[in-house]
């Protein structure tokens, strides 16, 4: 990524979260990964001033307690948090999910491949793009 700040991963499935960590390691992405299990936990993390602001948020949609769309509704109405690019990463091909996400101006919507190699390739492109693009919070 363009910044050395951590990546916030919002994902209820621990195995999927491990796959993301493994892929980022395989790609030598140096950013740390902060894993939160749902929207509510992610908000709590973002609202504590002791925590580092993430460079980007990778967001699953189907999660218990607070799902991805409800999470987007809240952060995109917060003047500070709305700046952080949010990339949806889901298995949902549902048109409505896609539409609602783009209505909240997500900065990408990636359908997770079940094939590990293809998944690594997707994260490679994601990392290339967000290394080319500036980010709202640069620096360490």
């Amino acid at each position: 990524m363009k910044s050395s700040k951590p990546i916030l991963l919002v994902e209820d499935d621990n195995v999927d979260a491990m796959t993301v960590r493994r892929a980022m390691k395989d790609l030598n992405v140096p950013n740390g990964i902060i894993h939160q299990l749902d929207g509510e936990d992610a908000l709590e993390y973002l609202r504590s001033s002791d925590n580092k602001r993430p460079c980007v948020i990778l967001l699953d949609l189907n999660m218990p307690r607070m799902n991805g769309i409800d999470f987007l509704k809240i952060i995109k109405n917060d003047d500070e948090l709305k700046k952080i690019p949010v990339i949806v990463m889901t298995t949902s091909k549902d048109e409505r999910d896609k539409m609602e996400s783009f209505e909240f101006s997500v900065a990408g919507y990636i359908i997770k491949s079940t094939d590990y190699k293809k998944f690594v390739e997707a994260l490679k492109i994601l990392n290339l793009y967000w290394t080319l693009s500036e980010l709202p919070y640069p620096g360490a």
Partner: peptide, 15 residues
């Protein structure tokens, strides 16, 4: 410029 445009939820800022 960067902060203002990210606040408007842009999907990338390429110099």
């Amino acid at each position: 410029d960067r902060l203002k445009t990210f606040q408007l939820s842009i999907a990338g800022f390429v110099v």
